[in-house]
């Protein structure tokens, strides 16, 4: 895997607040990378520094293979969280304008605009004023304008968080197609989106990078046996659960619990399974579900972002 972008010791300080604290990572050519983290973790600040909208306090951002003095923005296509347009332009006009500003010839910009309007599914609205577009259409147009100059790195800031479930699915599918053509970095606070599309994830928390790596490796390395237990909502069973959680046998740890269910992480699956089954029969609990499997990324994500 060749490295496309490397970021070293990137820091951004706003007055007193350290928004991004000395982070470093690499993005491989052709990879799809998710920048994950709860709201306020510093994702957008990081992205804005990559795109040049914000000057870093310190640190370097380097594309490999870029000539000395070349403008980093030539290689980046960027879709901000809420894309803004000139309402008096038509969708097609904006694309042509964006294309020409990226250095395409008039002819090239025109044909590329038509192609992209078709591709993001707003070809019929291309001749209408952007002022009358819906949120979903603006998001699609935003994606199209980010792609106009065939960027080496496509940067998307929360591309689906403002969309309804249908729009969300469609945009996710589009990103899924795009990741075969170019390198993609997108930020999200929804783990599920990242899991669905990405090769690599970067998890940020309070301005720091808490976890980075390929999805497969992280999944493998952090795989722990998990028992997930659900009981009926009768008094006896609930009392049993509340009591039992406080005196769990050695080697079993409760991660999350709600009123009628608990997730248990076990050191050794076999011992844990025997212990739980024995306990369940002994106390005559009305069990509704017992699932035995492995920890998901969600467990890992929660562990990382909620760690003290």
């Amino acid at each position: 895997m060749s490295v496309l972008l490397s970021v070293e010791q990137l820091t951004k300080r706003f007055d007193e607040e350290l928004a991004v604290d000395n982070i470093g990572f690499e993005i491989g050519e052709g990879r799809c990378v998710a920048l994950l983290g709860p709201n306020g973790a510093g994702k957008t600040t990081t992205i804005r520094m990559l795109t040049g909208l914000l000057q870093p306090t310190s640190g370097t951002i380097q594309f490999s293979g870029m000539k000395q003095g070349q403008d980093r923005r030539e290689w980046i296509g960027y879709l901000p969280q809420t894309p803004a347009f000139y309402g008096w332009m038509t969708g097609r006009e904006f694309l042509v304008y964006a294309g020409r500003l990226c250095g395409l010839s008039a002819k090239e910009a025109a044909s590329r605009s038509n192609e992209l309007l078709e591709r993001v599914g707003i070809a019929s609205a291309g001749k209408r004023k952007i002022g009358g577009y819906s949120g979903g259409m603006k998001q699609r147009l935003g994606l199209a304008q980010a792609l106009i100059h065939r960027p080496r790195l496509l940067v998307l800031d929360e591309p689906v968080s403002a969309l309804d479930p249908i729009g969300r699915r469609e945009v996710m599918a589009m990103i899924g197609e795009l990741k075969n053509e170019t390198t993609v970095l997108f930020s999200t606070h929804v783990l599920h989106d990242a899991e669905e599309l990405c090769d690599d994830i970067l998890i940020m928390r309070r301005g720091q990078l808490s976890l980075a790596g390929s999805l497969a490796t992280l999944r493998e390395e952090n795989r722990e046996p998990v028992l997930s237990l659900e009981i009926e909502e009768d008094d006896h069973s609930r009392q049993w659960l509340a009591g039992w959680i406080n005196k769990l046998p050695n080697g079993i740890l409760a991660t999350s619990e709600t009123r009628g269910s608990v997730r248990l992480i076990a050191q050794d699956l076999e011992t844990a399974r025997r212990a739980v089954l024995k306990e369940l029969t002994k106390s005559e609990v009305s069990l509704s579900k017992l699932e035995i499997g492995h920890s998901t990324l969600e467990d890992l994500f929660l562990k990382v972002v909620t760690a003290p």
Partner: peptide, 12 residues
């Protein structure tokens, strides 16, 4: 309005 951010991330 955010349009400056849309234009100024392009090589302009």
């Amino acid at each position: 309005s955010g349009t400056a951010a849309m234009i100024l991330v392009k090589p302009v």
